[in-house]
Amino acid sequence: MQTFNYVKPASIDKALAAANGGKFIAGGTTLVDLMKLSVEQPTGLVDINLLPLDKIETLPTGGLRIGAMVRNSDLAWHPEVQKSYAVLSQALLSGASPQLRNMATTGGNLLQRTRCAYFREPNAGTPGGYGCDKRTPGTGCAALEGYNRTHAVLGTSEHCIATHPSDMCVAMAALEAVIHAEGPKGKRTIAFADFHKLPGNTPHIENALEPGELVTYVDLPKPIEGSRSVYLKLRDRASYEFALASAAVLAKVEGGHIRYVRVAMGGVGTKPWRSHEAEAALMGKTADAAQFRKAAEAALAGAKPHNDNAFKVELAKRCVVRALKMATS
C-alpha cells in the first residue's frame, strides 16, 4: 500500500474540489481491499461519508431516487424497494455478506471492480507479473490461457474476459436505472446501459465517469403497473459467493402473453448484461417454458466460452428460464 492523503469534506462542492487526482472512498469494501493488494494506488482519498447523499426519496414522477451513499442493506430493506422493485432487493441481499452490505454503498457497488484473480495479483501488469491489460494496457491477459472458470462469456475481447461481479447492477440494468453524476464540468445523467463499458481494446476504462466525477444519485423509473420482478443467482455454495450466473427479470403477463419484459444477466458478462435478444424473443409471446428456453438461447447466442467456463453458457440459460418462470407464474 502506498502513502496517501486523506480528506473528509462535508459538501459536494468541497468533495469535487478535493477530488483532483484522488479517489472517492465510500464504504471502502472494494477500494481498501484493492489498495492493500497494490491494485489501486491513489495518492489521495476523498472520504464522501459526510455528503448528504444517504437518502431514498420518491420522485414526483413516481420513481425512486437513491443517494449514492445509501448502504446496500438499507436499500435492500427499504419498504418501497421491497414492494415495487423486488428484483433490486433480492439482488442486493444475494450479494456479499451482511457485514459487507452494511458498509457497501450504492455508488461504490456501481464501481466495484472485477474479481479476476490475475487482476487482483499485486504484481499483475508489471514486469515479472501476470499480463493484465486492465491493470496495464499492453501487457496481455493472463486469464485467456489461465484458470478462467469464473470469467465472462459475453462481451469479452482478446484483451479482457473479466466478469463484472455486481448483483445490484444486474437488477438496475433490468430496471433501466439512470445515474446522476456531478463533476468539474457540472451535472449530468447517464443511462444505465451506457454507464459500464465493454473491454474492447481498453479494458482499463470501465465506465463513463470522467476523472473527478462523483456519482450522486441513482434514479429508478416508476414501477411498471402489473409487472413482477425476480432475481435468481446460481453459484457453488449457498451464500457469500459471486454469481456463476444470475438473472434479473421484470415481466408483465396479460392473457397468457408477455406484454412487458426486461432481462439482464450477471456472472456471465464483462458488464451487467441486459439482453435485448431475450426480450425480443419474448415480447408478445406466450409465457411458457418453450418460449423461455428460446429467449435463453437468444440471450447466450453470442457467448464465447474459454477453457474452464463453458458450463456457464448452459447454466445461464437455465437461470434465465427459471427466473422467467418465477416472474410469470
Binding site: R115, A117, Y130, R237, Y240, E241
Partner: peptide, 23 residues
Amino acid sequence: YEKRTGQPINGSFADYLVATCAD
C-alpha cells in the same frame, strides 16, 4: 495451482470456498 507460475490462484476466503452456515 496456476499452471504457469504454480501459484495457488484461489488463495483467499472469497475464492477458496468452504461451507458457510447457509450450506
